[in-house]
Amino acid sequence: MANVVQAKNAAGSDDPILQYVTFRLADETYGINVMQVQEVLRYTEIAPVPGAPSYVLGIINLRGNVVTVIDTRQRFGLMTADTTDSTRIVIIEVDQQVVGIMVDSVSEVVYLRQSEIETTPNVGNEESAKFIQGVCNKNNQLLILVELNKLMSDEEWAEVAAL
């Protein structure tokens, strides 16, 4: 896959091609940079952690490692929903920390040119408004790109690491 990306980047270095893993959440499609995704897990039992922040669902055992699972809906300010067979836990790596984000489903990996990413009007004062990197129209569908680096503040990352 890396060869394909390199080949496409070589086609236009001024306009690099990016890969995004798309997932569904509350009937909308979101994309995260594929380079930050480690793996995608089926929903497994999540052990709640007493005293954890509200945006933390709990922890899971991933091959002997404890991984904190973030409630993405709560983080995005969306309504809560029950888990289904399509529910997935996407393991991501941000700032050398590994966490999992729970999503409704995982769709595909899409190729996007940097120039295709458009900025969005940011008229909200909420912290969640900062998570949106931009939008891109792909396959007649608007893809909302999420910037994972801003998913949590440094204090929040430290709080998660302490769990």
Binding site: E28, F76, N122, V123, N125, E127, A129, I132, I144
Partner: peptide, 11 residues
């Protein structure tokens, strides 16, 4: 329209 989270209600 495609809603964006974290935006005011009038958007």
């Amino acid at each position: 329209p495609t809603p964006l989270f974290g935006q005011p209600g009038w958007f």
